[in-house]
Simulated assay, not measured.
Amino acid sequence: MTQQSKFYLIEPSNENYWRAIILFGRNVASYKFALAKALYDMRKRSGDLIKLEDLAPAYAEHICEHLLKCDRQATSPQSKFLDACRAYNNNDSDHSHLIENTVKLGFQNVIDAFHNVHGSEIPKRFFLDERATNGGIRLTDEFFNLAETPQFADLNSETEARWRLVETAWSLSMPRQALQVSLDDTSSVLQVATQARRVSITSSRDALNGYQKGRCFYCFQNISTEQHASELADVDHFFPHMLHFCADGKPINGVANLVLACRECNRGREGKFDRLPEPILLERLHNRNEYLIGSHHPLRETLMVQTGTTEAKRRNFLQSVYSCSRETIISTWRPQQRGYSVF
C-alpha cells in the first residue's frame, strides 16, 4: 500500500479522497487546482451537468488571478492557454476570447487527469467526463455529498494553500534541496527563505490541515481553519521552542515539527503547553510527515532536508531529537482522545 492510498483508505471518506487529489498529485501545471476551485464555485447551481462554456468563466478566473500573483503556472515553458490568460490580464484580449480559448484549450488534460493520484485513479469520482456526448462534465453524488460536509469550506482553503506552495516553488527556480519552508511565528504564515529575502507563501493552518484530515493532531476531534470558527486550530510545535538546541541544526519552526491542535490540547486546562508528548505520538508525527513527503514540491524537499532522505533516516532523526528532549523535559503529556484515529 502506498503512502498516498494509505491516506484515504484508513478513513475512506469523500473529504479524504478529495484531499488525496489535491495534495498528492504530481503537479506539472496548476490546472487541477483551478478546476477544483471552479467546482467549489459552482456547487450551488441547479442540475448536475456543467457545460464547458459554463465551467470556463470560473476556471479561467482562478488561473488569471494566480497569474497576477505568480506568472509561472506550469513546469512547461510554453502554453497557449496560459498565454491567452496573460493576454486577458494585459487587456490585449476581451472576456469572450478568454472563454473561447478556455473551452478550446483549458480542459485538454485536466479533466482526464483530475482523479489520478500517482498513476492510478482513486476509487471515487466527483464528476464524469461527458465532453464527447454532452459537451461537459456531470457532477456525481460524491461531489454533492462532499459539498454538504462541515469541512467543505476548509477544503477550498486547503486547495488555495497547496496552489500557493506549488507556484511559489516554481517561481523561485531554486534547486529543490535548497527550498526551506518554515513558519513565521508572528503571523503563522509559511515562508521560503531565499538569499535575498523571505517570501511569504500561505497560511500554515490551510497548508497543514488537509494532511491531518481536519482533525486535531493529538485528540482527533474536528478542527477548522476558518478565522472566526469556534474550533479554530492552533499551530503547535510538537517539540517546544525551548528545545531548539536538540534539533541538530534543523529549524524548530520547520514544517516537520508543526502540527495543528485544538485549543484544549494546546493550551486548555489539561493542555500540552511546553510539555513533551508521549513517545507513541512520535510515531504519529512520523506518519503525518510521510504524508507531507508524498505531496512533493516543495514540502517533500523541505522535509527531506530537515529530517533525512530516506524513511529510516527520518524516523531516526525524530527519535534522536526526542531522546535529547527527554534530557531536558522529564515529564511527558498524554492527550485525551476525543475522536477516532485517522492517521
Rank of each mutant, 00 (worst) to 15 (best):
E231R: 15
E226L: 03
P277F: 12
G268I: 13
V192S: 05
T168N: 14
T2I: 10
E327W: 06
V259L: 14
E61C: 01
N134L: 11
D92G: 06
L9W: 05
E226V: 13
K313G: 07
Q337V: 15
F238K: 02
P57Y: 09
L183R: 01
S182Q: 07
A161T: 08
A256N: 09
G25D: 04
H115D: 05
R205H: 06
G136H: 00
Q191K: 12
L318I: 09
C70I: 03
L128S: 10
I201C: 07
Y59C: 01
L39V: 00
L105P: 06
D94M: 08
E121S: 12
N109G: 12
K272S: 09
R176S: 01
R315L: 10
S341Y: 07
E15M: 11
R315N: 10
G135A: 03
G106C: 13
S224E: 05
R19S: 15
A74T: 13
D112N: 11
I122T: 03
A256Q: 15
Q78K: 08
N16L: 06
T140Q: 03
P12Q: 12
I330D: 10
V235Q: 11
F126K: 08
F114Q: 09
Q108E: 08
K6W: 05
C216D: 06
E290V: 03
A20P: 04
N287R: 15
N156C: 04
C85P: 07
D112E: 14
A247K: 02
T140D: 02
N316I: 06
A56S: 13
H62W: 01
H97A: 13
N257I: 14
R288M: 11
S13M: 05
A56M: 00
I201S: 04
E130S: 10
V103I: 12
H97K: 09
A56E: 00
G135T: 08
E53D: 11
F239Y: 04
N91S: 15
L318E: 03
R269K: 15
Y8P: 01
T149N: 08
H118F: 03
C64F: 07
R138L: 11
R198G: 10
P123F: 05
Y322F: 15
